[in-house]
Write a protein that binds this DNA or RNA. Structure first.
Lengths: 343, 343
DNA sequence: TTGAAAGCGCTAACAG
DNA sequence: CTGTTAGCGCTTTCAA
């Protein structure tokens, strides 16, 4: 009576409240929640009834303290880039939130200093605020992976360990070369033979990966790539300039780009010259961003299966946090091609 | 010696470890962390040294349990909408993560069932997993606000309490009518007189708000609005159809749209008819999405000051969670206009 | 200014 | 199958 009364809405009910109401010990309530099989049917029903009546939900902090687990996975969010079409990570976050919920995890976002890629990880780790991390920007040759590895911090990478092929952490990635292969083959099937490439600077491993799909596909058909490629910054302006130069100097009839941002640059050039995308010159982008989906006449684009990536990452996470921990081999997923009016 | 040795990397150091190393009591270490002013300078320095040496960070779960606060704010993420230009919420999440970090909070994302807008809130609330919520979709006339209010759950809304003008919860919103006013005035200044509106269906309060900015501005100049407005679904296809009909029946020289998605529909129609956006027909969108930023020749768009929204929301959150709690009046922020080639 | 004791709500380990 | 005991790491009394 004393404990139940008066707390109508002030403090949430505790295990003890449920135990008292159900006439059992606290431990039995705990078991009812975590190991229902251990209880006799009628006891379980009685406890369950008390739980429902009180609207009891185990206190997270107490459980976390006791079990040394938070059921939170941390993910660092890079500052949004204005003026680009890069929303891949936002799309991924959506998928990750959905998938991890099904596995009983929540996603904790933390901010990113562009200069210090390690900022934020350290504190969350030492304060045991998260059980594991999902690391997304493995491409900058940045030290996150090895740093986290050295601290024995559980993490799964979205992205191959390009610089450390012998890395032992779990990772999931999308085969960029397969994507541009898809794009290039699609254009070849449409009758194009002079297919240009606009990609990122050479120090980007992802960029070189994507580029390789284009070049190997052309070469496998006996077509030349010389003079048909350009490596620039990932901006609309760069894509615009590069495509203008390529059109003048190499007369391609189609472009494959390392990103939708660059592809939009190509569309700018075409618009300026009165050329119609898809009819006069074909363009294929990469990432299937919202931009690709809504720009007239639709931008054909390589689509990463982010839902699947999230699913694989959560699967890897569950292995990593299991008893005993299990680390499977890296997973490489195949992208698809979203064909639209530009090709 | 016994406690320090052997735990090199296994378990993170605790308050007790620091206390032992510094030769003080655990309470003194706690004070060093939370109330440094209470310590003598030399003691503080000694403790701080021990903290640094051990790499100590207070255990979150223990602190949460004791203080009944998680320093987490929950935000529900709606499923991403493919085929639209709506990334406002993603942009907002970025800002919120940044801003709340400065205030000592982390953002916990949880998934959204489209059918049940309450899903997820209940459990996080009862398990005291988050200190407060940020609620973003107040416009559907959905029950979140009143539901949360009834449970005395602290929350701040991004969006006015349209249906409950006497609501007592803190909110922050952007003045949509002011945005379309800005857009319409901009077009009037450019010499346009027949300015059409493409907006959402009448049951959208936000849509009606944005529409009102357009209509009141035209009327204040003595210009008619009759036959110049259309209310449709928020899709590219709807925008395309609506603009085609309006062009045929009302010959507007400019369009103001309730979203970038609809504006892209207008661009589709213009492209089909060989009309150049900006030169032949002006178009203004709403949200300043990435699409607006990169599409040729650039889509003029109303931009919501999401960074400021996030800042105001965090400020309101701090008030709400303060002792005693403080609830200020609602905050209405002014949008700006990003002028580009389409106008 | 510093220290000792108590307890937040939960679960692991054992005893009955 | 159920209950008792102990303690996770921290902060809030209260004493010294």
């Amino acid at each position: 009576m004393s404990s139940t009364a008066g707390r109508t809405s002030a403090t949430p009910p505790t295990l003890a409240d449920v135990a008292e109401l159900a006439g059992v010990s606290r431990q039995t309530v705990s078991n009812a929640v975590n190991n229902p099989d251990l209880l006799r049917e009628d006891t379980l029903a009685r406890v369950q009834e008390a739980i429902d009546e009180l609207g009891y939900s185990p206190n997270r902090a107490a459980r976390n303290l006791r079990t040394r687990a938070s059921h939170l996975i941390g993910m660092r969010m890079n500052p949004a880039q204005e003026g680009t079409a890069n929303a891949t990570m936002d799309r991924f976050v959506h998928s990750l939130v959905e998938t991890s919920r099904e596995a009983g995890y929540h996603v904790l976002l933390f901010g990113g200093d562009h200069d210090d890629p390690l900022a934020g990880y350290d504190d969350l780790l030492r304060s045991t605020a998260v059980d594991a991390f999902v690391v997304t920007d493995t491409y900058l040759g940045n030290p996150q992976a090895s740093w986290l590895g050295a601290r024995r911090a559980p993490f799964v990478a979205f992205g191959r360990p390009w610089d450390h092929p012998d890395a032992t952490h779990p990772w999931v990635d999308v085969d960029g070369a397969a994507g541009t292969d898809l794009a290039t083959t699609h254009l070849l099937d449409r009758g194009h033979e002079r297919i240009a490439w606009i990609g990122w600077r050479k120090d980007s491993r992802i960029g070189e990966d994507r580029r390789s799909g284009w070049s190997r596909t052309l070469r496998s058909r006996g077509l030349a790539t010389t003079g048909l490629a350009s490596r620039v910054e990932d901006t609309v302006a760069s894509g615009r300039e590069a495509s203008a130069v390529l059109l003048d100097e190499a007369q391609p009839s189609a472009f494959v780009c390392a990103s939708d941002t660059l592809a939009m640059g190509v569309l700018h050039t075409l618009a300026e010259r009165g050329l119609a995308p898809g009819r006069d010159v074909a363009v294929v982008g990469f990432d299937d961003s919202q931009v690709a989906q809504v720009v007239p006449p639709g931008l054909t684009s390589v689509r990463q299966p982010l839902e699947d990536v999230a699913a694989e990452i959560v699967k890897a996470l569950e292995g990593l946090l299991g008893h005993p921990p299990y680390v499977g081999p890296g997973v490489l997923l195949e992208p698809t091609l979203a064909v639209r009016g530009s090709s």
